[in-house]
Nucleic acid binder design. Structure first.
Lengths: 179, 179
DNA sequence: GTCTATATCAAGATAGAC
DNA sequence: GTCTATCTTGATATAGAC
């Protein structure tokens, strides 16, 4: 067994994710992660030197998952391979618990310029891809993100029907502009 | 002098606001408020029994100020007394530092259902006023809030021109739908 | 190189003195 | 009604075991 036993970073992220989903980002602590993961607090801190790094890692993993969702929607859906329609569909279908966690993470990262870089990068790419030559697309993008964030933060409640028709309206706006 | 000397809650909120603007909501502490306001930490905690109450009070004051801004835009502007256009104009013109603070507070309140009530109320009223019979208005509202939040949280950067034209597009969308 | 145990320090909160 | 003293928790740093 030359194989070194190392703490599974990804498993720690799973645990952290569960805590955030259950109790919100505010209740996320190294102690709690350590307890649930069955390692020492120091072990957790060896993997993630501080809170911001931990949150940033969670956000990064989340963004990758979301990009995967978008790619799936591009292939399987009524999006006809259109990037924006796939993005809207992925945002619309995001699981509520995960959306709430994502919003919570974004909030936790704000004001930590250093660690928010993956997040800023995500939005930079979105704006480049959609917004540079198409003003309407940019507006639609902000509408989707606004709805996603406000629902995720628990600041608005929308029924499933309202949610669907909201995103349908966004898609309509986007497609009309392309005409 | 039967007049009891009481700590000026509003002055404490001013101090807290200054800290959040300078250093972000994460750096807001009772110690710092007490030091700057020249009272004891216990005195501050007497006025605001805990962190969430403090943040909630800041948010409430903010929302009142914003409502005032909207009212002004309704009177003075090219909004022709239209509620939505006034709301868009007020959101567009929000001072950057204050917007950043507001976004920071929203983030801090999320996940504290109890204390986020004024905020949820704000959005509930907005959706009732604008979104109940007009789907397009709802979409535009989310676009404005999305842009406001993402910029406030420092996750997107938009030039002044981009910002203006984004809000111009929202106003256009809203007005077209009313036709 | 990876982790545990322990120490330190900041900040929220409480009890009770004034 | 305000302040002092103190408790507790959690983030982070360090020392050194494996």
């Amino acid at each position: 067994m030359g194989r070194k036993r190392t703490i599974d970073r990804d498993a720690l992220l799973d645990v952290a994710e569960a805590i955030v989903i259950e109790q919100g980002a505010g209740k996320l602590s190294f102690d709690e992660i350590a307890k649930r993961a069955g390692v020492s607090k120091g072990g957790v801190l060896y993997c993630f030197p501080n809170r911001q790094d931990l949150v940033a890692a969670m956000a990064r993993r989340d963004l990758e998952r979301f990009d995967g969702d978008v790619a799936n929607h591009k292939l399987n859906d009524t999006t006809r391979g259109d990037d924006m329609l796939a993005h809207l569909a992925a945002t619309r279908d995001e699981n509520r618990a995960l959306a709430s966690k994502a919003a919570s993470l974004m909030a936790a990262l704000a004001g930590a310029p250093e660690h928010a870089e993956p997040m800023r990068d995500h939005y930079r790419r979105l704006l480049e891809r959609f917004g540079s030559d198409n003003e309407r697309a940019r507006t639609v993008l902000f509408a989707a993100e606004g709805a996603f964030l406000l629902r995720g933060l628990g600041l608005v409640s929308l029924s499933d029907e309202e949610w669907s028709s909201l995103f349908a309206d966004m898609a309509r706006l986007y497609e009309e502009a392309g005409t």
